[in-house]
């Protein structure tokens, strides 16, 4: 930690400050010795107060209420009664809850792993200098990201219907043995839903990585070329390290999306067949709006929030740790 004095700041500013003026006063005030009697400047706090008030009313207070309700049995209307940690215990003892948690692990692979790998690959190809039509590819590949979930589901339900184009194409290619009940199978429907989620998320990852690639100094690529690096070597030696920040963002957002997976799955299978594609978010919805057990839903929400925070911290720690290393 360096000390901040008027001299150092003046030196950084590149020249002397005017003999009189606001800068000098601010700098002098900034360098004044700190003591218990010093008045706190409330100005900055007043500036952020409106935003903090909104944040508190719409985020912090509901969050605190949610945590409180997670320790109660509450049907959403009447009086809540304290039940301690039983709502949290039931998350681990209820087989459907456990299945939802296990399914989240699978969805992380599809919602985070697949879009990041494919997004990196695609960005590396279309982000190369001199690539023609980059804007077109970027737009087309980003399109799924801006479609509403309902539209996405209409498209994929048509494609994956038992007598739909996907099975039709497989049959036409002599691969009829590969035809499946894509959205009605206990063994593969979760994977198929994960792939639909990956298709949606991939465009976002790709655009993020493309922006990152464009921010990598061209000198590094030139130097790699001079050193005789192949495109693959160039990717691993220059592009990938340069995208560390974007990777952290993509990973954080996509893992959280996997934790919160709801809309696509709800619109297609509602967690079925059976309970093979349930997720914590679907269980939360059922707890809150079907079972009318808002306390249990709140407990699940708190666990999901905590898990998201932990994962985010781990990802940030990994990236920052490497950056500082």
């Amino acid at each position: 930690m360096r000390s901040t004095t008027p001299e150092t700041l003046v030196a950084e500013a590149g020249g002397p400050l005017p003999a009189s003026g606001g800068y000098v006063k601010i700098l002098e005030r900034g360098s004044a010795p700190r003591g218990p009697k010093r008045k706190t400047d409330l100005g900055p706090y007043l500036y952020v107060l409106p935003a903090m008030a909104v944040f508190a009313v719409f985020v912090l207070v509901p969050l605190a209420q949610g945590v409180w309700y997670s320790f109660t049995s509450w049907d959403g209307i009447g009086a809540a009664s304290w039940v301690g940690v039983s709502n949290y215990i039931s998350i681990w003892t209820d087989p459907v809850m456990r299945e939802g948690i296990a399914n989240t692990g699978v969805l992380v692979l599809f919602y985070a792993g697949v879009p990041i790998v494919v997004g990196l690959f695609t960005a590396a190809i279309i982000g190369r200098r001199g690539m023609h039509g980059m804007g077109f590819y970027r737009t087309v590949l980003f399109l799924p990201q801006i479609l509403s979930s309902v539209v996405v589901i209409v498209i994929w339900r048509l494609l994956l219907a038992p007598a739909g184009p996907v099975n039709g194409a497989l049959g036409g290619l002599g691969l009829a043995f590969l035809e499946q009940d894509w959205l009605g199978s206990f063994s593969i429907t979760l994977d198929v839903l994960g792939l639909i989620g990956a298709w949606v998320a991939f465009g976002f990852c790709m655009v993020l990585f493309l922006a990152g690639i464009q921010a990598i100094p061209t000198e590094l690529y030139d130097a790699a070329k001079v050193d005789g690096a192949s495109p693959v070597r160039e990717f691993f030696a220059v592009t990938l390290p340069g995208l560390r920040g974007q990777l952290a963002v993509a990973m954080t957002l996509s893992v959280i999306a996997a934790f919160q997976a709801f809309d696509i799955i709800w619109l297609v299978t509602q967690g079925g067949p059976g309970t093979s594609s349930v997720t914590p978010a679907i269980n939360l919805y059922n707890d809150a709006f079907v079972s009318q057990n808002v306390g249990a839903a709140a407990a699940l929400g708190v666990v999901m929030l905590a898990a998201s925070l932990v994962v985010t911290l781990i990802i940030v720690k990994l990236v920052e740790g490497r950056r500082n290393a």
Binding site: R157, P162, Q180, D181, W182, L183, G184, S185
Partner: peptide, 12 residues
């Protein structure tokens, strides 16, 4: 029931 009964929506 149809062969793919679990993969067919009620509207289909």
């Amino acid at each position: 029931f149809p062969k793919s009964v679990l993969g067919i929506s009620s509207s289909q």
